[in-house]
Amino acid sequence: MIRLNVFIKVSDAHRATVLELAKDLVAHSLKDGGCIAYDVFESSTRKDVLMICETWKDEASLSAHEKAEHFVTLVPRIHELSEMKLEKFIF
């Protein structure tokens, strides 16, 4: 399995938009083959930090997800409005 933690640092001006885009990404991604879990979290201590936590069955499932229309449309929009940092764990 593969776990991705995507940390998103966003300004107050873009927070609501980025959160809505992230929720849309979650809703679509949960339907992707091989998706075990996909969620967005809001920090309770830092208003400027969100996190998307994803778990995938295998590399093939993750690769297909990264080519999906919702991914190639929504992730660049989130990236334009925020700073993103990715952590990847294979277990």
Rank of each mutant, 00 (worst) to 15 (best):
residue 80 E to S: 11
residue 82 S to T: 11
residue 63 S to W: 03
residue 1 M to Y: 03
residue 86 L to D: 01
residue 88 K to E: 12
residue 54 E to L: 01
residue 4 L to Q: 01
residue 8 I to C: 09
residue 25 L to E: 12
residue 56 W to C: 00
residue 16 A to N: 09
residue 16 A to I: 03
residue 83 E to W: 08
residue 73 T to F: 09
residue 8 I to K: 10
residue 6 V to H: 02
residue 66 E to I: 07
residue 8 I to F: 10
residue 43 S to F: 07
residue 58 D to C: 03
residue 69 E to R: 10
residue 61 S to D: 05
residue 55 T to L: 10
residue 79 H to I: 08
residue 85 K to W: 00
residue 33 G to F: 06
residue 85 K to C: 00
residue 47 K to Y: 08
residue 72 V to I: 15
residue 32 D to V: 12
residue 38 Y to N: 06
residue 1 M to R: 02
residue 33 G to I: 07
residue 55 T to A: 07
residue 25 L to D: 09
residue 7 F to H: 12
residue 1 M to I: 05
residue 44 S to K: 14
residue 74 L to D: 02
residue 78 I to H: 04
residue 75 V to H: 04
residue 83 E to D: 11
residue 71 F to V: 02
residue 74 L to T: 13
residue 91 F to N: 08
residue 34 G to W: 00
residue 75 V to K: 11
residue 5 N to T: 14
residue 44 S to Q: 12
residue 32 D to F: 02
residue 26 V to P: 05
residue 48 D to G: 07
residue 71 F to H: 09
residue 87 E to H: 15
residue 72 V to L: 04
residue 77 R to D: 00
residue 84 M to S: 06
residue 91 F to R: 05
residue 71 F to E: 06
residue 57 K to N: 10
residue 6 V to Y: 05
residue 77 R to G: 05
residue 90 I to Y: 05
residue 41 F to A: 14
residue 49 V to T: 04
residue 41 F to Q: 11
residue 2 I to S: 03
residue 84 M to Y: 01
residue 52 I to L: 13
residue 40 V to W: 02
residue 45 T to M: 14
residue 41 F to H: 13
residue 26 V to R: 06
residue 17 T to H: 13
residue 50 L to R: 04
residue 26 V to Y: 11
residue 84 M to W: 01
residue 41 F to E: 02
residue 79 H to L: 09
residue 87 E to L: 15
residue 19 L to A: 02
residue 8 I to T: 13
residue 13 A to I: 12
residue 81 L to C: 10
residue 31 K to D: 10
residue 86 L to F: 14
residue 58 D to Q: 09
residue 91 F to T: 01
residue 54 E to H: 10
residue 42 E to R: 11
residue 33 G to A: 13
residue 77 R to E: 15
residue 88 K to H: 13
residue 5 N to Y: 10
residue 64 A to Q: 12
residue 36 I to L: 15
residue 26 V to S: 04
residue 84 M to F: 07
residue 61 S to M: 07
residue 85 K to D: 04
residue 78 I to T: 05
residue 89 F to H: 11
residue 80 E to H: 12
residue 18 V to S: 06
residue 4 L to G: 02
residue 10 V to I: 11
residue 78 I to K: 07
residue 19 L to S: 08
residue 17 T to W: 02
residue 71 F to M: 02
residue 24 D to R: 12
residue 76 P to G: 08
residue 53 C to H: 13
residue 28 H to M: 07
residue 52 I to N: 03
residue 9 K to D: 10
residue 61 S to A: 15
residue 88 K to C: 09
residue 85 K to L: 11
residue 85 K to V: 12
residue 45 T to P: 00
residue 81 L to M: 15
residue 40 V to T: 12
residue 4 L to P: 00
residue 72 V to E: 07
residue 48 D to V: 02
residue 11 S to K: 13
residue 65 H to S: 08
residue 26 V to F: 11
residue 8 I to N: 06
residue 90 I to H: 00
residue 35 C to M: 12
residue 40 V to Y: 08
residue 74 L to W: 03
residue 45 T to H: 08
residue 89 F to Q: 10
residue 46 R to V: 04
residue 75 V to S: 05
residue 64 A to H: 09
residue 19 L to Y: 05
